[in-house]
């Protein structure tokens, strides 16, 4: 039971980070980022593709990438178990690298369609994300593809039975930092312009603001944050398997969370992430029981897809504003007027 709760909290942290970043882009900025999974995957590539290569080079390991990665990851894990600072250092290094890589990938991927309508934006972002995913999946040379590669365990200095709690705490700390950062960001002039852009593009143009620049900037910030989640996820599972970064899990589910919680409301999104992860983990955890209880002639995961798909349609139809509605932003002048 404790294990299940920890698992729920860990994925709650991950989905909170990704969904908050999507809320910035979609909820506040109106960008339908149907390529979200790509930016989480970027974080995974930073660890599996870049860190692993650095380690292989550092240890001077020969052989193909996948087996060399296993050896490098093993050696590094050994070193970390002796030296906690090394593990944390690698984590921070990867997070910083993921922020840079995520920002670059995010900005680049929106460039082709940044000036166009929402439908073209959504289609292009989805197409880019799908193609990159497919290549990384089928080409096992880049980050191991469908075989996957091992990565070092950055918390190897903590005894095995407590390590999962430690990862959960790490994830939650990151989620809190992201939340506080976004709240500050959205209450700045940038946040207000972003909402204005969603309501009326022409209005922003009239104020002399460049819509394209605003979208590129928003995508860069959002993608950088999503990449952090990718890094945490990879270190937690001590491996990169590309399948784990598919469109359903990291694009569709974050959208479901944002809709469920209330788009344009970060507190709502956190609540949405919690409800969603609770549901998902319960289905995952009890999938064999569900299968046998209902005499399903198929795996419960298919049922999970159908349920979450229907849930999304129901929300769209009956509660499109979500559980918590968007709050108006109170600028200091408005606040003082209300108080009068």
């Amino acid at each position: 039971m404790v294990e299940l709760i920890t698992l729920i909290l860990f994925f709650f942290a991950l989905y909170t980070i990704v969904s908050l970043s999507l809320n910035l882009e979609f909820g506040y900025g109106g960008i339908p980022n149907f390529g979200k999974a790509l930016y989480v995957l970027t974080g995974a590539v930073v660890v599996g593709g870049i860190l692993n290569r650095l380690l292989i080079w550092y240890f001077g390991i020969e052989g193909d990438f996948i087996s060399a990665s296993s050896i490098a990851a093993y050696k590094m894990t050994e070193l970390i178990s002796q030296n906690p600072l090394l593990g944390l250092g690698i984590f921070i290094f990867c997070v910083l690298l993921a922020i840079v890589a995520g920002a670059i990938v995010g900005a680049l991927s929106i460039l082709p369609s940044a000036k166009l309508k929402e439908d073209y934006l959504g289609v292009t972002l989805l197409a880019i994300s799908e193609v990159v995913y497919l290549i990384l999946f089928y080409n096992t040379e880049i980050v191991g593809g469908y075989y996957g590669v091992s990565t070092p365990d950055i918390l190897a200095f903590i005894p095995g039975e407590y390590r999962m709690y430690a990862y959960t705490v790490l994830g939650l700390i990151c989620a809190i930092i992201v939340y506080l950062f976004l709240e500050r960001l959205l209450n700045s002039p940038y946040g207000r312009i972003l909402r204005g852009h969603r309501e009326n593009e022409d209005l922003i143009k009239a104020f002399g603001r460049d819509v394209m620049k605003l979208r590129v900037k928003t995508m860069a910030i959002g993608s950088a944050i999503a990449a952090i989640a990718g890094v945490i996820f990879v270190f937690y599972s001590a491996s990169v398997v590309v399948n784990a970064f598919n469109r359903v899990e990291w694009t569709f589910y974050p959208f479901l969370i944002v809709l469920l919680g209330g788009k344009g409301n970060n507190r709502g999104v956190v609540l949405g992430a919690f409800i969603f992860v609770l549901l998902k983990m319960l289905i995952d955890f009890y999938k064999f029981d569900i299968k046998y209880l209902l005499h399903l002639p198929f795996e419960a995961v298919w049922l999970q897809y159908i349920i979450f798909g229907i849930l999304a349609l129901l929300i769209l139809c009956y509660k499109p504003e979500g559980i918590l509605k968007e709050r108006p932003i109170f600028t200091p002048p408005i606040k003082s007027r209300i108080n009068e």
Partner: peptide
């Protein structure tokens, strides 16, 4: 209900997931 284009797009994504789930379940 006069939903926006983004909402309609999410609806087709959701529908896609439902069809995917049905296809997978049905194949088994």
């Amino acid at each position: 209900r006069k939903a926006s284009i983004e909402m309609l797009m999410i609806a087709t994504l959701a529908w896609d997931l439902i069809l995917f789930g049905i296809t997978g379940a049905y194949s088994e």
